[in-house]
Structures are given as structure tokens and as C-alpha cells.
Amino acid sequence: MVALCFLAFFLVSHSPIDPVQAYVGADMMQVSPEQREKIAEHWGLDKPPWEQFLHWGKSVLQGDLGTSMIYRSPVSDVIKERFQASLALMGIAWLLSGFFGFIMGVTAAMHRGSWIDKLIKWYSLTLASTPTFWLGLLLLMLFSVWLGWFPIGLGVPAGVLAEEVTFYDRISHIILPALTLSIVGVANIALHTRQKLIDVLESDYVLYARAKGEYGFTLLWRHGIRNIALPAITIQFASFSELFAGSILAEQVFSYPGLGQATVQAGLRGDLPLLLGIVLFSALFVFTGNLIADIIYRIVDPRIKEVA
């Protein structure tokens, strides 16, 4: 974590974007050099990098992660707010893709070689090579522009007071981005599950189970599901990182005000504290995913329990 802090800070502070210029934007011509210096001084940008780092490091330890330049509020607050929006989005996508991916994988493996297997394989391979943002654009065109079922973007309707935003509004805004993410996520999980289950079904112990008179769904349930649960869990939780990356693109396409969009903004406008905060946070997020997977392993797999 500490190493990550150093590295991220080093990279960002060497970025060619001048934060002041990015902040001021198009008004650059009207801002005098003195004013620019003042802005820089206000943010502490005139000090040498190590001092900036110490300053930032202090605020990390305090827990507010410094002040965001573009939002003018503590980074921790920004992340909290943005993450709540993202969490709903990613959560839905995560659950949907995990659930359907697993079912599709199992179905394909059970009917290996049949048309349904081929269909699922074809679908998954196509989608696995589909860029998220492109799929997002397609969905936008189909559902929002042509069919008009869902709004085009944003997290809530434009021009409506915050208090008047209904639950339905939020739902209808979240469906398309969540769908985009889960459609892409399904492919990966379905393919992995399918392959793993095929391996299991060809294994000696399934052969033996069949020799013992087990068949059909009982056989699958007793020996199949448990043995593919581990890899499935691994993928599911390791996909936290992919999900995070995917959400950046999806949120950008749908102008959904989540953490992903904040990342892009922070990067483009040189908002150093916010960007660093998000880097730290996402690292923590992915780490949590892997940790949860490890913990579940222990519960599911007796072999790992034994070693511990």
C-alpha cells in the first residue's frame, strides 16, 4: 500500500498536465500570471514534489485524503459519494454476470456439443472480444434512441431537484450501464465455468460416480457444482478489477456519475489528490475482492483448511 502511494504519486506528479491550466481551462487568456501563481500557491503546487507528497501523506493519515481540486471538497467525501453510485452499478452487474455466466457455463458444459453449447460459446467468444464502450454505444442506440425505453445518460433525470428524484428514476438510469457491464462480464465467466465443468465431467471421479449408479442432475449437483465452485469463486472475485476498469468506460459512455467517471475527470484535469485517492481506493477494493475469495476458499475447500 505504501509502495503504491509512492508510485502513484510519482507517476501523477510527472504527468504533463499542468493542474492550474487544466483547472482554469478556456479562461486561461484572462488569467494573469500573478493569479496563476496564487492558485498554485493555494494548492501548494509551488512547493517541491517531496513536500507536496508529505502534505498529501499527512492528509491520507488523517483520513480525508486531501482536497479535490475540481470538486473543492475532501477527496474521501467525493469518493464516498461517487462510490455509492458506482457500487449499485457494479453490484448489479457483478451479480447478474456471475449468476447468468455460471448458469450459461453449466448449461453449455452439460449439453456439450449440442446447438445450445455452440450458441453459448459463440455468444461468449463474440462478447469476450467486444469493447465495453462499443457495446454501451450500441445499447444506447437501440434502447434509448430508437426504442426510447431508457434515458440516454446521467444517474438521475436532468433538471429535476434532488428531492424529487424517485427510486424509479434511479432504476431506469442504472439499467443500461449495468446491462452493458453484465453482458460483457457474462462471457468470461460462462467460458471459464464451461471449461472447468467439462474437465470435471471427464474426470475419474465422475466416471466412478457414474459407475456407482449416479446420473443426471444428482451427479452434477453432488460432484460437479462443488468442484467448479472454487474456480468460479476465484473468477467472480478476481473480476472486481475488471469490473472496475469496465465501469470506467461504461460510466463515461453513459455519463453516469460514478467513481469511474470521477477517475477520468481527475486524470484529465490534473486533480492530483482525487486521482491518488481513487488509485488507493481501487487498490483496496480489488484487494478486498481477492481477500474475500481467499476466505471463501477456506470454507469451501477442505484441502486448504487442512494446510492452514
Binding site: 475419474d204 471421479y205 466416471l207 466412478y208 456407482k212 449408479g213 453432488r222 460432484h223 468442484n227
Partner: peptide, 29 residues
Amino acid sequence: LRGKEIAFIPQSVNFLDPLMQIGQQVRTS
């Protein structure tokens, strides 16, 4: 008949489900 009147004894322990307790596997049939 298989598993009941006709039983199979496989080559090695690899034919047992690695994630299932022995008792349960013996009881299966």
C-alpha cells in the same frame, strides 16, 4: 444395476471426489 448389483472398483484414490467426505461417498450407492 450399476452401483447396486454390478459394482466397480477403480484403480486409485483419484476416483474419489476430492471434495466429498469418505463416508458420504461410500454411502452414495
